[in-house]
Design a protein around this nucleic acid. Structure first.
Lengths: 217, 217
DNA sequence: CACTGTAAGCGTACGGTGTAAGCCCTGTCA
DNA sequence: TGACAGGGCTTACACCGTACGCTTACAGTG
């Protein structure tokens, strides 16, 4: 934004920068999905040509990494003062909340790995809590893997989307058309189709926490 | 393969068909990764032009679905006569084995959902075992979600690959360069880097089976 | 004031993608 | 022999990420 003082106000577009680009990419992905995001579309979203983005980011991968980082930064860090079970529970739910709000991170994480700054901060905090709780290094490792898998797994299923209401009716027709070849699937179809992933996730999280606790000592 | 009987053997390429195309796609993805697969490359792999594939498949999506189906068909179905804990354990490990052999299915499943024929057969079998074991429909649903999440989650982490040996050295340098900002990550780095996903998966699977068993009755 | 160096934005172009449309060759059957 | 059908090939289109070079705007000097 530049002003000619005393003259007419020249309304130039606010200058581009990395953060604005990544923010725009995140909201674009939230609206249209990450696989729809292209440099040209992102540019036009910012009122700018595609190639102008390359003045602020090295390439598209840097944008994608930035988007992942953006999401991880939004997960509140667990409080090391609390009981580890509480920390793990609230952090798991918080992470799940972000993965639900930005379903595209899951596939992005799979393609690109997750070793941005924010995700390392997050991971470090959780590992620290587990170690402080008395887990050995091996046990901490097991616990982390398990918690991460559980979280990513549910986020995965939620974002893989075929169980969602959208094409659910079509699927139901398909299933009933397949008749009794899949009786158990058909019987559980209503539950599978309209399930609340949040509470499903919490259910499993409790089992895992209890299981880990039993391994402690 | 056509022969001019009594004359020289005319060595024409064996005719294309859906199965050969999908098989070729699977082996190509095993070698080069699924994101490298393109219609042109797949065609040239089969000694054929890209557009010729469209005489046997509707589009690339049908090939991708076929690849998913191919992998699920390779998972041996659990035996309904066995104890459900044994069935769940062996089936989980068998599924994980396939996901390890074909790491690309995980991201494919996420993009496309998993409701091909083979995956429905597989799912139906597992659901049937859980119901026969005495789980209610809701409990069966919970158990399925949890087992699926655990399996997909580990497969996910395994295929997301950043923890693998390849770029592990670079990552280790990066971590030590980041100094003591992430002490817990650095401390556990060796475990995280060289871990055996198979046994990690089995460890978590046992916790889940025990947790589910406790819910039974 | 002019001159110059720098950075940001733009336009063009290249090689890649999936696939629609049309051509041609060949095998099969009347 | 002639017609037909189907499989493979070629061409073409719209999209992608991005390398390259041009133009404009501005900051710092003399």
């Amino acid at each position: 934004m530049t002003y000619d003082v005393g003259m007419t106000v020249i309304e130039t577009r606010s200058p581009l920068n990395r953060d604005r680009i990544i923010d725009a990419a995140v909201t674009f992905a939230d609206e249209h999905g990450a696989e729809e995001l292209s440099m040209r579309k992102l540019g036009s979203e910012l009122g700018v040509e595609a190639m102008s983005l390359y003045n602020h980011v090295a390439n598209k991968d840097e944008i994608l990494d930035g988007m992942i980082d953006h999401v991880f930064r939004a997960i509140p860090l667990p409080d090391p003062e609390q009981d580890w079970r509480v920390s793990v529970r609230t952090t798991g739910l918080a992470a799940m909340e972000q993965f639900t709000a930005h379903p595209w991170v899951v596939s992005l994480l799979m393609q690109r790995g997750n070793f941005g700054n924010s995700s390392l901060i997050f991971m470090n905090q959780v590992l620290g809590i587990l170690r402080a709780a008395g887990f050995s290094d091996e046990e901490t490792h097991h616990a982390w893997q398990m918690l991460a898998s559980h979280t990513m797994g549910y986020a995965f299923q939620q974002s893989s989307g075929s169980w969602h209401e959208k094409d659910w009716d079509g699927l139901e027709n398909q299933l009933s058309r397949l008749g009794d070849r899949f009786p158990h699937v058909v019987a559980l179809a209503p539950l599978l189709g309209h399930c609340e992933f949040g509470s499903e996730f919490a259910f499993g999280l409790e089992i895992i926490i209890n299981g880990l606790e039993a391994r402690l000592g």
